[in-house]
Nucleic acid binder design. Sequence first.
DNA 1: GATGAATGAGCGTTCATTCAT
DNA 2: AATGAATGAACGCTCATTCAT
Lengths: 208, 208, 208, 208
Amino acid sequence: MPTRSDTDLRTAVLDATRQLLVREGYRDLSMRDVASVVGCSVSSIYLYFSGKDALIHTLMAEGFERWHAMVEEIAAREATAAERLEALCRAYIAFGLENAEYYEIMYMFHPDRMARYPKELYRRVRRTMDLTAELVLAYAPEAVQTSADARIAWTALWATLHGVVSTLLTDRLDHRIDRSRYIEGSIQFTLNGIRAFQPATLPGEVAR
Amino acid sequence: MPTRSDTDLRTAVLDATRQLLVREGYRDLSMRDVASVVGCSVSSIYLYFSGKDALIHTLMAEGFERWHAMVEEIAAREATAAERLEALCRAYIAFGLENAEYYEIMYMFHPDRMARYPKELYRRVRRTMDLTAELVLAYAPEAVQTSADARIAWTALWATLHGVVSTLLTDRLDHRIDRSRYIEGSIQFTLNGIRAFQPATLPGEVAR
Amino acid sequence: MPTRSDTDLRTAVLDATRQLLVREGYRDLSMRDVASVVGCSVSSIYLYFSGKDALIHTLMAEGFERWHAMVEEIAAREATAAERLEALCRAYIAFGLENAEYYEIMYMFHPDRMARYPKELYRRVRRTMDLTAELVLAYAPEAVQTSADARIAWTALWATLHGVVSTLLTDRLDHRIDRSRYIEGSIQFTLNGIRAFQPATLPGEVAR
Amino acid sequence: MPTRSDTDLRTAVLDATRQLLVREGYRDLSMRDVASVVGCSVSSIYLYFSGKDALIHTLMAEGFERWHAMVEEIAAREATAAERLEALCRAYIAFGLENAEYYEIMYMFHPDRMARYPKELYRRVRRTMDLTAELVLAYAPEAVQTSADARIAWTALWATLHGVVSTLLTDRLDHRIDRSRYIEGSIQFTLNGIRAFQPATLPGEVAR
DNA sequence: GATGAATGAGCGTTCATTCAT
DNA sequence: AATGAATGAACGCTCATTCAT
């Protein structure tokens, strides 16, 4: 009597881990818990993952994958550059909020602290960013002219979005501020910033 | 030969904890580690702190204190509103980078996960934010008109700054991007965003 | 060379605990001690018992079980009521002495001090007592007439027996007194007490 | 401003310990607690007691002292032998109940487990018992004829009383049994036992 | 392919005790 | 006479990991 005949254990473990990550957070996640949710033995997990780190790494990769897919979908949309960039921003925030601590392991973790993560991931992340940079470039071609500029602009834009997500996830938004307004406001004014973008000059250089 | 006679153990423990926090992050911080860095016994730590939580709380309070002092100093400066707000932004980022995961425990932590932190801290944090809001208001009085707007604008501004710090601390800045340029760029364009600020409209409302 | 292959660790842990309980008493019993006697790691104990309390509870239950079995066996004997009650008394004392502080955890412990013990045990204990009460009733039907009287008589009888056990276990019997004589003497005169039993009158009531 | 000028620290420590012993029980008694109740430093306790054991020993001695005094007082009373022996029994139980865990350390502790207790105490305890034996002898001179018999009888009597105290202190009295009736019943029927006393014969000897 | 048994290292915390001052 | 500072050993317990079956 195969309890789990069709779906394999590896998948079940990933599902359980993802679920527990949201419920308990990364540090309270234990192999025991995962096994107990899956309904298998602890040691079985080691058949598919070399250890806890590898398990987490897999989820991180999965997360980046998902995000990449979203970006690709948006990039492919029939819409104005402005609509697409706004959509990207909203998608990012939504992604972060919906994936909660899943997001945490993707972004808030010092890679150095875990066994070195495969280079391959960095490559993928960079590819995602390049794709995003194109959207930025298309959005404000008169302000952002080189693709180097675009990367700067996007990283800065991303920083805002990350800040928003992180602020909301950790519940640090002042309670007097309306959540949706805050999100929209942040997006709008960071986009304003992009449009008004001019290659930054370091302090000491001829200023803006 | 008094190794520590003049400076007391309490201070040494705090120093070691701060240092370890940067090296190991909060969750990997153990009382044993702290003791070993300080060069004292584990139980000695308990002479000055009732437990691990209390130790961390102390550092958090200390961090917020320091930041508050910086804000006050900047607010008191003889300078234009623009200079002061820019200074605030740079100070924030510098503070975050220099205090590394000291910063982490201050901002990246869900308060709910630790034994409830004294209300008093929250009050201080909000006071700091109000002070900051004034700087924002002074910077762009034509765009940001009410102090409610100012709080929204600041929280959004803060989100960017937090994003920058977090991006840099977690080493996620694309290595092709110049660090200083990125910082300046982020500050400039977030300030642009402030000047162009208009109370956000929710999607569905009459848009910008 | 299997040191323990045939008998399982769970049993070994219980054995060691019982043994240590005699040697060290309950409060000085540590999981480390148990592990060291068993020759296993501390954490292995947790494979079979959820914690120290559970370990002790198991032993308590086991003890009460054994005692209940003895009572049942005696109640079933083909013998006079007098012989059976005397047998019960001797059995009680023998049980206490042979099981040493195993006895201690069964009887000398304030239940309140440990995580609440399952009700089920209390029920068993009371059932054992009821069974015993019957033996008392059969022994002196003219003196002890109601089963309520029997319970009082037995509890008082038990108090004596417990006193004897406790006295001997804690080595408080005056060394000039012969151990066996003391035991027999106590039994005889407590039985005399039973036969001469009359429902106690509180001081102030019309006295005997 | 001497906070404790008249009464010395030694006394205060003993008082605090006694008080804590009742409140917390022996095993939860800590030097810290004592010091905190006294309002002195932990190390100050060591000025008067060489350690925790010595502190407990002192209290045990004190307890035996008190009990001895009670016995003497009763022995000296103008009353019938019966009244005095009954009074002794009631006094014993009252003493045990009123001194709760104070009683515990006096009687429930294996002397072997603590640093050897001074011989002097044993001598005192024996003297107390001899005094008691006299009361027993006077109570039933026709049954208890030699002082050896008296010691046996008393030890057995004591066992009952101890059983009663222990039963009540550990809350093991069946709740359907009235407390006072139980106490009186036990006393009465143990006295009956004494009166009917005949030197015990070992099983195998010519029986009663 | 899957598991149960076992472990070693580590955790936060408590406590009796010592000793220089 | 009294203390504050410091410690070492122990405690109950958890966890990621290994390995024979």
